[in-house]
Design a protein around this nucleic acid. Structure first.
Lengths: 342, 342
DNA sequence: CTGTTAGCGCCTTCAA
DNA sequence: TTGAAGGCGCTAACAG
């Protein structure tokens, strides 16, 4: 069916080795004449190199896997977009997989992807559990973390300055005069949730405020979780008038709960999206640069892959280096007053 | 480095052929005793089968590529989620790639993915141009279309009943008493846009309304496009009070333009999302079942792959079969009055 | 600069 | 039921 390198060799009147020298990446010495003959032969035969065969030989698939907790999440997909672009520019293909927010699924995806021979993996872990990642590293596959840090394994990571983001978000609310501020949502097994809670607490402390336990409404990172937490808050005896949402999904659920309710509350949340201008209670947004995070992850994993290919892998072990991208605080009110910008 | 089938064979005291018979998919006759010995040997060695090598031999990678116009689009990702799940249940891996809304990029993704040996491809084409898809089919790789239909090639497709959806959306607005209704956005090279425009026109015709040319505000499928169309509408001498948005992105841009403007307009649009309840002008939504569409695409492409593997490919050529999933019209007002449901 | 040769790891007839 | 042997398509020494 498909033409092989032998067909090309035959037509060009050279050996398969010469054809390979012309067609394989990395410039090899070939006379310009034979070079052209080979290229023409390949062209006229409609020859396509078989990457499977090449990979078997070279032990490289020029593929990087990106494992995210879920696909239908704008933040993750923005990261993916940035990463895919960067990888493509290096000749790599990105393989996107979803763990469905399950560490179990993540684990099986990981081994499956490793079996399929990806050259490296970038993962946004479903939880902070990271021991299963070690198995991949042990197989000699470079792995880095994005957005969320996992424990039990020493890996390089790219994330945002979550602590500072939450700190500034909270401070902004304090500056606006709010005293009783709640922290809503957050799976404490997820590093970003912990870091944000920590920033929140620091801002309160700096303001000399002792956090009331009932204002720490932890639990979950999904829309449903935000909805439920907010409902509980509204039904509580003395609801706060301002709150920090742990992430976009929780924020969304909170706003959802607020729809059609006359409660006057203000929310500060994470992650900007095309939709945030429409969230009625939203006052501040801590915006991460998702695309940039993706690009950065792309270059980092490729560095890892190159180091490994160069052999300087066993000693280097340059794990645990955490790069934190800055977060921008956006005041979200102009939009609602007609000073639109797009 | 990695253990091979020979290591397992040696430890189990059998030949590599026997190991293969035990480990490869498809049950082969092996004595229960040797079976267990092989399994144990593999286990104790931490043996992992090399899928690259297997693929080279079997000509199957158990991989299906899904090419979407963009990743950061909830509708596409919901489709992907449904498809990935379905494929996984069949032992296939989904490879997600983005064409970045460019037919050129789509084309290069297609050939690259084909070179990498995917068993089948599912594509949401960037435009209606489909001739480049034929090249893939000619290479013997099953291809199906999802959501958007492409021309110049005869392929099976899964999409929604867009014409009917737009028809009912428009009728709903007519029933509410609106007479002057605009159609906003729509790249006419995209099939869904054409179908929706057609349904819109039919509803008007049935109501005995002659569409005013200035109310057909075509152009683009992105947020920016919706914003610009809406701006032009608001600045026009006699703006309509109701409109149909070609898709979620355009709808979003329109609402964005409306923010902080006192105009009283009503929008009917496509695609439900977590965010639609927050869009102030949104009155009706034509909801597609994205996840179901993905599942359906998954089973369809696997059927195609199986047919091909069975050899009944050249004759069958069962192309051009378009499956249309129903669309549900949702009235979007309860949400805003406090009758929330989640 | 180019050809010969030997596999990469696995699957699969063909014999036994 | 099992083993021996050949080869999938390509690359990488090693000669020449």
């Amino acid at each position: 069916m498909g033409k092989t390198i032998r067909d090309v060799a035959a037509l060009a009147g050279v050996s398969t080795a010469t054809v390979s020298r012309v067609l394989a990446p990395g410039t090899r010495r070939v006379t310009e004449g034979t070079r052209i003959r080979v290229l023409k032969a390949a062209e006229s035969l409609g020859y396509r190199t078989n990457f499977i065969a090449r990979s078997l030989k070279t032990r490289s698939t020029m593929t990087v896997a990106f494992i995210v907790p879920e696909l239908a999440n704008n933040f993750f997909m923005d990261v993916a977009e940035g990463m895919g672009e960067k990888l493509m520019s290096y000749g790599y293909t990105m393989l996107l997989a979803s763990s469905g927010n399950s560490t179990e699924v993540e684990k099986s995806q990981l081994t499956m992807l490793a079996d399929r021979g990806v050259d490296g993996m970038v993962v946004i872990p479903a939880s902070s559990r990271g021991d299963h990642l070690q198995a991949i590293v042990d197989r000699g596959i470079p792995v880095i973390l994005v957005d969320r840090i996992a424990e039990g394994v020493n890996l390089n990571a790219i994330t945002s300055d979550n602590e500072k983001g939450a700190f500034e978000l909270t401070k902004a609310l304090l500056n606006d005069g709010y005293r009783r501020i709640a922290f809503v949502g957050g799976d404490i097994t997820v590093s970003t949730a912990r870091e944000r809670l920590s920033g929140f607490a620091r801002a309160l402390a700096e303001a000399g405020i002792v956090p009331e336990p009932e204002l720490i409404c932890l639990g979950g990172m999904e829309v449903q979780d935000g909805y439920e937490r907010m409902k509980a808050i509204l039904e509580s005896p003395n609801p706060p008038e301002a709150m920090v949402a742990v992430n976009l999904m929780v924020h969304l659920g909170m706003e959802r709960c607020l729809l059609g309710v006359r409660a006057q509350v203000v929310i500060a949340g994470f992650d900007a999206s095309e939709y945030t201008p429409f969230l009625p209670a939203c006052r501040y947004i801590a915006a991460q640069n998702a695309v940039e995070m993706g690009r950065s992850a792309g270059t980092t994993i490729i560095e890892g892959i190159n180091e490994k290919k160069a052999g300087c892998f066993q000693k280097g072990k340059s794990g645990g280096r955490v790069t934190r991208l800055p977060i921008t605080i956006i005041r979200h009110e102009e939009e609602k007053n007609g000073t639109k910008s797009l």
